[in-house]
Design a protein around this nucleic acid. Structure first.
Lengths: 248, 248
DNA sequence: CTCTGTCCTGCGGGAAACCGCATCTGATCT
DNA sequence: AGATCAGATGCGGTTTCCCGCAGGACAGAG
């Protein structure tokens, strides 16, 4: 049984190596990769099915790497090990995990024992293990208690990409007015209106303020946007003629 | 001679501790703090004048902590130890460093020897040591070769805060048209126009796209914006009446 | 001195954003 | 069946953004 560690920080890498060897005595070999690309290559060449993956890496980060690895071998078991539990990462992962795949999400601040249990549960028992903090965020996010609807989130990504209301309407198959209604709800949920009351008659540009709020709350991150940018470009190529129609 | 380490990651903390003891045998005691607030408190209570500081921490990050520490004792020597050399951090630090203070900026990817040299240079010789990568960014940033003018950067921050052109004009003492000119230059430098040519007649909302570009290029980060937000609120309180004037 | 480049300013207009009001659908609960 | 609530849509109007055109202030090079 072999395990692959994908982590750019040398200290964390050796810590993980040690943790894996202690938690999995039945493990024969522990391989290491310094970034996502190398991780993909090693996983492919050695047919590795157990991976511990850091999320924030460059040039190719954990989600991208996991995406291609899972596309090649959906039964691969991946334990994500990350500093933060931001919504963008949680959403990103839950989108790419194949049906029935065993995976996990453990924070770097977790104790050695938590990490050990996660390693054994995922790699031996093929169970899914997700840290409580992350799970709570998942609930809030998907349960829309205080989070965003799926369409609202899509619209949020679109305005971050710099799209016009009309283009968003085209793309999401909504009317112009519906998009604007989504926007107003987004503004409310992000609390962009709060200070409008306070400071006299000061009006704000809600659209760009919403984008920064989304970044600060970690609803958006680099990975999400780069992927969304690619999707957008492809959509543009395929539906360019729609945008030429002047009356929408 | 005492040294304070402010770093939230336990692994990096113990690595730094080891590095400090090896590089500075004349050091009597090495204290550790897990976040910015604790760092400030320890520095104040123990009158520590040599600090190794991580940048990205929560709840209170390195720049904020360094700001208050330097305000209390400007002669404190601080070595910033960070993962990245993004423009927001470099700008942020160069704003708060007192005249004549000895400080340094070393990347976490630097070799042990580089770190050792920096520790001795700053804490013993009171020299400034800044990694080559960071220095290069400083040049580009301040030398405006490809970077931003100071006013352009201010306007960029303002639109990220969600301000209206008119409010920005008031705040920066510019005419409305000048602000819009700054904006157009920002859009060009951020490359927001590129895709406007490509995709047929597709028009974009440059303002919000510029905000995300600034985030992705790490021109903006959480610290910068939170500080800017505070400044903005104070300015609003003091100049509320200016905004009431309808004709600007 | 003149030329040139950079920065600031005003005018004007087309396009988009922001938003209140009203209608219609569909799903859920009692 | 009736009530209720969330979501989608259209209309109309105000505000803001985006930007081409044109002119003035100011500094440095020839």
């Amino acid at each position: 049984m072999n395990v692959l560690i994908v982590e750019d920080d040398p200290l964390h890498r050796s810590y993980l190596n040690e943790a894996v060897r202690l938690a999995l005595p039945e493990c024969d070999q522990v391989l290491e990769a310094e970034d996502g690309s190398m991780g993909e290559r090693l996983a492919r060449e050695h047919r590795l099915e157990r991976i511990v993956m850091d999320l924030q890496m460059s040039p190719r980060n954990g989600i991208e790497a996991a995406r291609t690895i899972w596309r090649e071998r959906p039964e691969t078991r991946i334990l994500f090990w990350s500093n933060y539990a931001d919504e963008a990462n949680v959403r990103g992962i839950s989108r790419i995990v194949p049906d029935g795949a065993a995976y996990g999400y453990v924070l770097k601040s977790a104790s050695d024992e938590r990490l050990r249990l996660a390693l054994r549960s995922i790699f031996i028992e093929a169970q899914c293990v997700i840290d409580r903090e992350v799970r709570g965020m998942q609930q809030r996010s998907l349960g829309r208690l205080q989070g965003f609807t799926e369409t609202e989130y899509e619209v949020l990504v679109d305005i971050a990409l710099g799209l016009t209301d009309r283009v968003i309407a085209k793309r999401r198959n909504l009317s112009l007015r519906s998009v604007q209604n989504r926007l107003q709800q987004i503004y409310e949920k992000l609390g962009v209106y709060d200070r409008a009351d306070a400071g006299a008659e000061a009006r704000y540009n809600f659209r760009s303020r919403a984008v920064t709020e989304a970044f600060l709350r970690k609803l958006l991150n680099q990975t999400t946007l780069e992927r969304a940018e690619q999707d957008l470009q492809e959509w543009l190529r395929r539906h360019a003629r729609l945008l030429d129609d002047p009356k929408g």
